[in-house]
Simulated assay, not measured.
Amino acid sequence: MPERRHDEEPRETDAERRRRRAQFLRELNEAKALRERVQPRRARAARMRQAMRMRTFRW
């Protein structure tokens, strides 16, 4: 497997990177929503765990 160095790749613009990131986040949210519909109990448990992590997080 040939290794590609970072500086050999064509430089993508910030706009392209933001567009790809926005697309990724949209798909991620869509997947989360689908998972919630398919497995509501597990999704609820995951939300509760996340809420507990946020409550116990020290700033």
Score class of each variant (00 low, 15 high):
Glu27Val: 02
Ala43Glu: 01
His6Leu: 14
Gln23Leu: 12
Arg21Thr: 14
Val38Ser: 00
Arg55Gly: 01
Arg53Phe: 07
Arg41Cys: 05
Glu9Trp: 06
Met1Arg: 02
Glu12Val: 12
Lys32Tyr: 03
Asp7Asn: 06
Ala33Ser: 15
Ala15Pro: 03
Pro40Ile: 03
Met54Gly: 01
Met54Pro: 02
Asp7Phe: 13
Arg5Lys: 08
Arg37Asn: 04
Arg44Glu: 11
Ala46Gly: 08
Thr13Val: 12
Trp59Pro: 06
Thr13Cys: 10
Pro2Ser: 00
Leu34Lys: 12
Glu3Ala: 11
Ala33Arg: 10
Glu27Lys: 13
Asn29Cys: 06
Met48Pro: 00
Pro40Gly: 02
Glu16Gln: 14
Ala22Tyr: 15
Trp59Ala: 10
Glu8Ile: 01
Glu8Lys: 07
Ala22Val: 15
Gln50Phe: 03
Asp14Arg: 09
Ala46Asn: 05
Gln50Met: 05
Arg42Trp: 01
Glu3Phe: 15
Arg44Leu: 14
Lys32Val: 02
His6Arg: 15
Ala33Phe: 05
Ala33Val: 08
Ala22Asn: 14
Val38Pro: 01
Met48Phe: 00
Glu36His: 04
Pro10Gln: 06
Glu8Tyr: 05
Ala51His: 08
Glu36Gln: 12
Arg41Asp: 15
Arg42Gly: 11
Arg4Glu: 01
Arg58Phe: 07
Leu28Lys: 13
Glu12Leu: 08
Lys32Met: 02
Phe57Ile: 08
Leu34Arg: 14
Pro40Leu: 04
Glu30Ser: 15
Arg41Thr: 05
Arg21Ala: 14
Met52Gly: 03
Trp59Arg: 13
Met54Asp: 11
Ala15Val: 11
Arg17Cys: 06
Asn29His: 12
Arg35Ala: 11
Ala51Gln: 07
Arg47Phe: 01
Pro40Asp: 10
Arg21Val: 13
Glu8Gly: 02
Ala31Met: 09
Arg47Ser: 01
Thr56Trp: 03
Gln23Asp: 12
Ala15Asp: 12
Arg21Ser: 08
Arg21Met: 12
Asp14Phe: 10
Phe24Ser: 12
Val38Gln: 13
Pro10Lys: 06
Pro2Ala: 02
Met48Thr: 05
Trp59Asp: 03
Arg37Ala: 01
Leu28His: 11
Arg53Ala: 06
Arg55Phe: 09
Asp14Gly: 07
Val38Asn: 05
Gln39Asn: 13
Arg35Gly: 03
Glu9Met: 09
Ala15Phe: 04
Arg17Met: 10
Pro2Val: 02
Glu9Thr: 06
Arg18Met: 09
Ala22Leu: 15
Gln23Pro: 01
Arg11Cys: 06
Glu36Cys: 05
